[in-house]
Amino acid sequence: MSDAPLDHGIPNPLREQPDFAIPAPLEAEINELITHYPQKRSASLMLLHAMQEHFGHVSRQAVEWIAAKLELQPINVYELVTFYPMFHLKPVGKHHLKVCRTLSCALGGSHKLHEHFCRKLGLDPHAHGAQTTKDGQFTVEFVECLASCGTAPVMMCNDTFHEGVSEKKADEILKQCQQQPSP
């Protein structure tokens, strides 16, 4: 693991995005999303998704921007980021590998699969929580049930589902990720 100080997920100035700016198409998308609800606050989750899709994570600036947009206090938005497991306060790897940990997948070999990824990427298979490689390319994380229990073990690479993932298939997924050109 890195020698960075303990990180409890509390926003600090280091994690701020000095270059934070909302491009026009994103703002248009956000304005459209807000019209879907009788009350602005309801759009919070969809706005957080839009932010995370665009920036890769939800920074303090993004939280404050959403709060201002929806006429809320920043805490109203921040408490969502800490409650819902899919939102990240800090950047994750370019390829986020989410391996299902729950029962049917565990019976189908998800622990071996998780360990396989960790070993291939030089991460600690026994560490708790998400781990990111030093080059920022990969994050490996155990997640809870992905609702594809019939094809265990299952995983997601970013938004794409992979089912019945053998070690061979896992290596192919890694290879595909590594071959992808940087954006």
């Binding site: 009350q39 606050r41 309801s42 759009a43 989750l45 998704h49 497991p85 899919m86």
Partner: peptide, 20 residues
């Protein structure tokens, strides 16, 4: 956004209203 409790009907409504 990845919380199982949102399947509970009133939890789901809270979530739809932009809350925990």
């Amino acid at each position: 956004a990845g919380a199982y409790i949102c399947g509970e009907e009133t939890g789901l409504i809270e979530s739809l209203e932009g809350k925990r």
